[in-house]
Design a protein around this nucleic acid. Structure first.
Lengths: 183, 183
DNA sequence: CCTCGATGAGACAAATTTGTCTCATAAGGG
DNA sequence: CCCTTATGAGACAAATTTGTCTCATCGAGG
């Protein structure tokens, strides 16, 4: 009987990813509930977006933790990270393009924490000689976000297979498109 | 006295990139004109978006032509393409996230043409042995879009230098983050 | 069987946005 | 200098969206 708040948030994210300007009514229908119930759980549109942001941050932090970024090579850690972040990719794809989040006030502190942890991973890869140093850790991080978003969208559109998600992102980000002569 | 339609479109794109839900009034102010004048040039919000789409397609096609994708190595062609597409990156970043464009009716034919040409470039690189074959041309194309969007946004936010734009995208896409042992 | 709590459907006003209109003004060409 | 044209400011109604409310219904648990 009771609505599963988490499930509502996921449906809302999916709907808003498809159409960022969805009305509360469209979001409610996409979640299979009525607009009244949606309002009972989230005070308004802003509150809904904020809740999505919180959920996204939580899932990302969980993914970062599960990926154990400090262990093994930076490349392997990155591969683990991409794999762990896959379930949250749809939500992420929406949040990344939701630039309204930093409107007026500052960016959510949670994103800053995540940014730092990911940047540190790339920095570690540079310091131990795995990664090239002419691409800054900040750019590599932004590129990772972009690729995750692109891949999530491509999967939604059926342009790439969902099972290839993490492979495509990690391999492109780490190895690039260029064919290696040999190892 | 007369409004520069092209300049209005560029300002509109910049404003809409910052905030996708900008009202016509916000767009007008961002363009330095009144809402009445904005309406005189574009019948409505939809017409404005469509005009932005047309402009984006035109600029992309011009970039594709200027990059001479069939000449030289695929890698060099890709580098030229990224360089040529830089002026349109802001507009592109908006259009890519504007998923409302394919709402209901089919995707604009212009995008399909562009998609094909870019995909063909990656395919050419694979056929001549430059690019690895485990990353499909379609994915490489989507990844390019994602990286262009990420880079455009990162430049806007001041996270990366504008002068590095094309280098960062092309080098990451082609070579990846991994450091090469030697050439 | 009854009660309580959550939900769906819908009404409603308020707020926002849009599209259209008028009028005054400034700019530019003849 | 005058006349044409485009613009800015603002009024206005229509449409859309939002937030709140009421009421009936459904289902679980006692």
């Amino acid at each position: 009987m009771s609505v599963d708040r988490d499930q509502v948030l996921r449906s809302a994210a999916a709907q808003l990813t498809r159409k960022g300007s969805s009305t509360m009514d469209e979001v409610a229908k996409a979640s299979g509930i009525s607009r009244a119930t949606l309002h009972r759980h989230f005070a308004g549109r802003d509150a809904l977006i904020r809740a999505l942001e919180e959920l996204g941050i939580q899932e990302c932090e969980a993914a970062l933790n599960a990926a154990r970024l400090d262990e093994g090579t930076a490349g392997d850690a990155l591969r683990r990270l991409v794999k762990e972040i896959e379930p949250a990719a749809g939500l992420l794809a929406f949040l990344v393009t939701e630039n309204q989040l930093f409107e007026g006030d500052a960016q959510h502190e949670g994103w800053t924490r995540l940014d730092i942890r990911i940047t540190d991973l790339f920095r570690r890869g540079q310091l131990n000689g795995e990664f090239r140093i002419d691409l800054s850790p900040v750019w590599l991080r932004e590129a990772l976000y972009g690729l995750v978003g692109s891949a999530a969208w491509a999967v939604l559109e059926g342009r790439v297979a969902a099972k290839d998600f993490s492979y495509l992102i990690a391999e492109l980000l780490i190895g690039g498109a260029q064919r290696r002569v040999e190892s």
